[in-house]
Structure formats: structure tokens, C-alpha cells
């Protein structure tokens, strides 16, 4: 790692005032002003230190959020939902009683992420803001589109772990498993700037697709801190599931993952359906054709199979990732059936 100074921020405004740039901007030659010192936020540090060790990032200063009070707590919101501080670790969140009881799909996604050691340090905020795991992006030798270069090496190269939807001009998949479930649960996020101004928005609209900008995955601004993730109270009758498939059963990135959130009315007809695919697209991907296939219907095996087929509509697989289509189709079917088996 390069030499850098470390500042222990005391307050959110403190930290925001010092965060002169985002990780994404600091990694893009066109956007970073090399003559101006770059100062970045550090939460758990799992991703930022990794990028620094790979010589992809060389900040002059890291601003640690470790000593900022109130960022690592989980509290019940007045509306019955949950307010999760951005510095809550994946391990603490997965083990939290209310998360396990009321948001079991989120607990399942978190428990399957990384290793116990990483989950004890990695934060939910850092998990949502981590850079993609594309091996071309992570290798300093490849000056790819996402780092300000002119070419996506994955589209014509080793694309087996890459996107099957919305994969032009860059084919990354979003790296956060938690993000898929949080989008399915209609989570919102809170961002605070140096003036303590709060910006609140749905998590789903925070993510940035390559069609809009290839050099960042989200809308985080310089001098802005992600402070909390807000979960609405579970709707009456809400049933959820999260399933993943990887090459290894533990400590591996998913090849495919599916988060499902369904509500059925008293006639057992589906009145709310959100189906989110992870490891499928550059942002958590809403399978809207699959959702439409379930709405107004009784959720039985036939409906789940039809929805799973519909989920793959519009896929544009690359030369080495066509295997993901049957994999996702099977997982969507199983996740829908797992969700409805859970309640009612």
C-alpha cells in the first residue's frame, strides 16, 4: 500500500467534510485531479484496503468512521421498520434477532456472504458501496472502461462470471448479495453531507447502470456519507426467500442469486411480487416479466415455472456465461416455491 494519513472522524459532518472524493472518482483518471490530495472514507476497509493493495487506489488520507457514534446500531423505526446503521457489520446484522425473525431472506443472504472473519469486519454500508469483482477491473494491467479506459475486456474475453442482462458497454455484475434482498424488500438509504443535510432515496434508484455511466455503480457524491439503510415494516402476509448457487458452498461469489418478496390476498392470489436477480446484471436486476407472470395468479408450481421462464426474457448472454440462463431459471422457480412454503 502507498503511504497515507489516517483521520479518525468524530461526527458524520466531520467525515463528510474531509471526504474530497469517492472511490469511483479516485480510480478514474479522467475525473481525479492528480494534483489535489485525495481523501477517502474508510468503513470496515475490506474493499478499500484490497484496492490499495492492488495499486488501484492510492489516497493521501483515509477518513475512518470507526469512532463516529451511532453508525453501528440497529434500531426499530417508528413505522415498525428497521434502521440499520451503515457501520453495522454483516455478522452482527445476520445474527440480529429482529432481522432473523422479520427479514429472514436478508439474514440468509448475509450469512452466506464471504467468510466469518470478513463478516465480523465488513459493514453493510461498505458492502453496498464496494467496487465490482470483475477480474479485469481488479487487475491493474487492464485499463478497462470502468477505470476510464476505452474497452470492456470481459465482453470478448473471460466472461463466465459476468452479466447476462444490460451487459453493454460494461459487463460487471453488482457484487453485493445484500443489495439484491434489500431491493426486494424495498429498502431506502440515507446519505448525509458536510452540512448535515440528509438525502433519502430508495436503494434501487441509488444504483447506476452502465448505460448511464460506466465509471461508477452508484450515485454517492463526494463529501457525502452513507449513514443508514432503512427497511420498511414487512407487509401483512409478506413471504420472502433468498437462494444462491455458487461453485463452492461457502466463501465464494455467487454464480446466480435470487431474492423474492411476495404477498397474496385472502383468495391466495398474488398481489405483490418483487423478484430480484443478483450476479445477473451491473445493478440488482428486477425480473419484471417474472413479477408480471405471478401477479393476479395463484402461486403454484406451474405459475412459478412460467415466471422463471419469463425471468430470462431479454437476456443477452456473453460467449462464456450462457450457462447462467438455466441456472437462474431453476433458482427463480425454487425461490418462488420456497417463499410461498414459508407462510400461509
Amino acid at each position: 500500500m502507498n503511504r497515507f494519513a489516517l483521520a479518525h472522524a468524530r461526527t458524520i459532518a466531520d467525515a463528510a467534510a474531509r471526504a474530497t472524493t469517492t472511490v469511483a472518482d479516485a480510480m478514474t483518471a479522467a475525473r481525479s485531479n492528480a494534483t489535489r490530495p485525495a481523501s477517502l472514507i474508510k468503513a470496515g476497509g475490506i474493499d478499500v484496503l484490497d484496492l490499495m493493495k492492488e495499486n488501484l487506489l492510492a489516497p493521501d488520507m483515509l477518513v475512518s468512521l470507526r469512532d463516529v457514534a451511532g453508525l453501528d446500531t440497529i434500531t426499530e423505526a417508528p413505522d415498525g421498520g428497521l434502521r440499520i446503521g451503515a457501520m453495522v457489520t454483516l455478522g452482527a446484522l445476520a445474527a440480529h434477532d429482529m432481522v432473523r425473525r422479520r427479514y429472514p431472506a436478508l439474514a440468509a443472504a448475509l450469512a452466506g456472504a464471504a467468510s466469518p472473519q470478513i463478516r465480523h469486519v465488513a459493514t453493510l454500508g461498505g458492502n453496498l458501496l464496494q467496487r465490482p469483482r470483475c477480474w479485469y477491473f481488479r487487475a491493474a494491467a487492464f485499463h478497462c472502461l470502468r477505470k476510464g479506459g476505452g474497452h470492456c475486456f470481459a465482453i470478448s474475453g473471460e466472461s463466465q462470471y459476468h452479466a447476462i442482462f444490460d451487459n453493454r458497454p460494461c459487463a460487471i455484475v453488482h457484487p453485493s448479495s445484500a443489495a439484491s434482498v434489500l431491493v426486494a424488500l424495498d429498502a431506502a438509504i440515507e446519505l448525509v453531507d458536510a452540512d448535515d443535510t440528509i438525502r433519502r432515496l430508495p436503494l434501487a434508484s441509488f444504483f447506476v447502470a452502465p448505460g448511464r455511466d460506466t465509471e461508477r455503480e452508484n450515485d454517492l457524491r463526494p463529501r457525502e456519507i452513507l449513514t443508514a439503510i432503512l427497511l420498511p415494516p414487512p407487509a401483512a402476509g409478506l413471504c420472502t426467500a433468498y437462494l444462491r448457487q455458487g461453485e463452492r458452498s461457502a466463501f465464494d461469489w455467487p454464480l446466480a442469486e435470487v431474492a423474492v418478496a411476495l404477498v397474496r390476498n385472502e383468495e391466495s392470489l398474488c398481489v405483490h411480487a418483487v423478484i430480484v436477480l443478483g450476479a445477473a446484471a451491473p445493478v440488482p436486476y428486477r425480473a419484471q416479466a417474472a413479477e408480471a407472470a405471478l401477479l393476479g395468479r395463484r402461486v403454484d408450481d406451474n405459475a412459478a415455472r412460467a415466471a422463471a421462464r419469463a425471468a430470462m426474457e431479454g437476456a443477452t448472454p456473453l460467449p462464456r456465461n450462457g450457462y447462467k440462463l438455466p441456472l437462474f431459471e431453476a433458482l427463480v422457480h425454487r425461490a418462488i416455491m420456497a417463499a410461498v412454503a414459508e407462510t400461509l
Binding site: R3, A5, R10, D14, R18, D60, V63
Partner: peptide, 20 residues
């Protein structure tokens, strides 16, 4: 940048490094 600075009491975070 100074080797080590302490908080000045005005909310400025203490900074360590980049030196030892």
C-alpha cells in the same frame, strides 16, 4: 502533512501519519 496532529477541540479529527 504533519507526522501527527491532535484534535484542536473544534471537531477536527485527529490525524495520524503518513509517517510512523
Amino acid at each position: 502533512m504533519a507526522q501527527s496532529r491532535n484534535a484542536d477541540g473544534n471537531g477536527v479529527p485527529p490525524v495520524g501519519g503518513p509517517g510512523a
